[in-house]
Amino acid sequence: MATGGRRGAAAAPLLVAVAALLLGAAGHLYPGEVCPGMDIRNNLTRLHELENCSVIEGHLQILLMFKTRPEDFRDLSFPKLIMITDYLLLFRVYGLESLKDLFPNLTVIRGSRLFFNYALVIFEMVHLKELGLYNLMNITRGSVRIEKNNELCYLATIDWSRILDSVEDNYIVLNKDDNEECGDICPGTAKGKTNCPATVINGQFVERCWTHSHCQKVCPTICKSHGCTAEGLCCHSECLGNCSQPDDPTKCVACRNFYLDGRCVETCPPPYYHFQDWRCVNFSFCQDLHHKCKNSRRQGCHQYVIHNNKCIPECPSGYTMNSSNLLCTPCLGPCPKVCHLLEGEKTIDSVTSAQELRGCTVINGSLIINIRGGNNLAAELEANLGLIEEISGYLKIRRSYALVSLSFFRKLRLIRGETLEIGNYSFYALDNQNLRQLWDWSKHNLTITQGKLFFHYNPKLCLSEIHKMEEVSGTKGRQERNDIALKTNGDQASCENELLKFSYIRTSFDKI
């Protein structure tokens, strides 16, 4: 039985969820670079991206490699990797027998973001014989899940209580170790020597080791999670996991709180800001991140802002960003909400898709409305799209047979046209069989910064309504002859009103 693990408890099935942008060198404390989270699957090609990484700022997932063999891993080693800020997950990587050479110096898994409450997941690794993470000293947050690894031993010899604050939620089941077939031998045991430290858990006094050649490092209890030197002297209180010299914040392997210019500090002093819960960055760093993602459509890219001495992905609820200094300031009234469309555009074809934009005031991208039916549609669209004030790209209304009016965009005031449909149009209306009105132009103002209007096959939309939009939106004169079809717009509506004058002759039985 794995020490510190839980057996036999019912657990939810383990679901495996399925960018080499360097964020800056980590400095003297770390020998390499800070790398983003990685999802490495199918083959070993991307694994080489770990070569210079000291910190993975995010998670590391290595999974679904069915053609790899043990010899493929023999020359692979990433000794610079010290810390993973989120979680480490391995799933069905064939041929991998140990992690001792792959990650010989991995010391800390912070667990800032977890995989279903777990910071370390080893699942269905069919050839893994031992973990071998002999320098792993601290899992700051989260638990361990090690399950269905039929060859995995050296679990009962690990004292997880020396690595985690609590072992109650560890789930370590259905491994070879369960069948008591392992016969784990710690260093020196074969020669009758006791080389590794022994600890007591559940009444068992057991030597602690990761492999037959690597003991588990056990520091004096007084050192807590700070770690200790090879001689057993406690590291500085700002260290986490390990250090090369005692009581020196510049000799830590990793930091308990924050890293700044080669030393570990309790908090980031001005003019620095907390970033990702582990390091200090200056304003320029946060500003660069903001600008890199301002026009990016890459998933996970955030326009970072500053709030409460932190550089964070977005302002919290009730705050909006001051564009001059990136500071989050309290909103006066309802907060603006910028919604970034991942692929640059979004099609609204149902109430469900409209709900995804609920509360958005600025759309960074283009909207395509293609709704053919739905219950209580006008009210639903207004509830979900009615706060949109600005669209950076274009607005396209296409084959939306259920629409009679666009009044559900009740606050839309600006279409920038930074991206144009077919390279020309910022407003595009095609084949809307029941569209009769755009907006009530006596109450609604709309500016279209650039781009043209396109109207074709809107049989109940009168040309007068379209011409009014040209005047109000500032697009009059931009359109070419064929942009607004004269014969297919309003051709099934009563669009022309003329005053009919009647004269009559009164007659009676005795007068003409």
Rank of each mutant, 00 (worst) to 15 (best):
C239R: 01
P334V: 02
L47M: 03
L289Y: 11
E180L: 12
R298Y: 11
W210T: 03
T68N: 02
E57H: 14
C223L: 02
G32N: 13
I306P: 02
Y30C: 15
G227K: 12
L50D: 00
V305W: 09
M137D: 06
P220D: 05
V55S: 02
E57L: 04
I312M: 12
V121G: 07
R297I: 12
W210M: 05
C328Q: 02
T189V: 04
T320Y: 06
L233K: 09
E57D: 09
N149G: 04
G333T: 06
C235D: 00
L174R: 06
V173R: 14
N325G: 15
N325K: 03
N202C: 05
L131A: 15
F258G: 03
N149W: 00
P79H: 03
W210G: 03
D72A: 08
T194I: 14
G183L: 06
L99P: 01
I172G: 01
A190N: 11
P316Y: 04
S143I: 04
G142A: 02
G241H: 03
C209P: 02
G262S: 08
C243R: 00
L174V: 06
S284N: 13
N43I: 03
Q245N: 09
E33P: 11
D178A: 12
G95S: 04
L50W: 05
D165M: 05
C331K: 07
C286R: 01
K251W: 03
C223A: 01
L289I: 14
T45L: 13
E181R: 13
G111I: 00
P271T: 13
P271G: 15
L240V: 06
Y118P: 00
D277M: 14
S213L: 09
T85M: 06
E314V: 05
N42L: 05
L114W: 02
N175Q: 09
I109G: 00
L99R: 00
G300K: 14
D72C: 12
L29M: 11
N150T: 07
C315K: 00
E33Y: 00
L164Y: 14
C328Y: 03
Y134E: 06
L106F: 03
C53I: 01
G232S: 08
H307F: 08
T140C: 08
G333Q: 15
R141A: 05
R46A: 15
T85Y: 02
R113G: 10
M125Y: 00
F103W: 03
C335L: 02
S225N: 11
N170I: 06
G262M: 05
N150Q: 06
N43F: 06
W210K: 06
N52A: 12
T320K: 06
C215E: 10
D86T: 01
R162L: 13
G95R: 07
V34L: 10
C243F: 00
I312Q: 05
T189W: 06
C186A: 05
R256Q: 07
I84A: 00
D261H: 13
Q216A: 10
S143K: 06
C234Q: 02
Y94I: 15
V265I: 07
R46Y: 06
S317G: 06
R69Q: 10
K224H: 06
S213W: 04
M137I: 03
E49D: 13
L96A: 13
D184K: 03
H59C: 09
E147L: 15
D247H: 08
A190P: 10
H290Q: 13
G241T: 07
L120H: 00
R113C: 07
R46T: 03
D72F: 04
M137E: 04
E207R: 07
V218S: 09
N43E: 10
C301R: 06
E181P: 03
P316H: 03
G232I: 03
V206K: 07
V144Y: 01
D72G: 15
T267P: 04
T85D: 01
I222A: 10
G262H: 14
E168I: 12
K224D: 14
L60Y: 00
N179G: 14
C234E: 01
C223Y: 02
E97T: 06
H127T: 08
F78K: 02
M321Y: 15
W160L: 05
C235S: 00
S77D: 04
H226V: 10
P36F: 03
H226I: 09
P249Y: 03
T140N: 05
P336T: 06
R263G: 13
D248Y: 00
S213C: 11
G203I: 04
N175W: 09
T229A: 12
N309M: 12
V218D: 05
Q276C: 02
S237T: 05
G333L: 04
E130N: 11
C239A: 01
D101G: 09
G241S: 14
T320L: 06
D178P: 03
Y319H: 11
G132R: 01
E180I: 04
L120V: 12
W160G: 01
I109M: 02
D277H: 12
I222W: 15
V144L: 07
F205K: 11
N242D: 09
V34R: 08
S143M: 12
T85F: 02
L326N: 13
L60Q: 00
P313T: 07
L88R: 01
L90G: 00
T229N: 13
T189I: 09
H307I: 14
P316M: 07
F283P: 11
D248P: 01
D39M: 15
N282T: 14
S296V: 15
P31N: 15
V218N: 09
V108A: 14
K310F: 09
F91N: 06
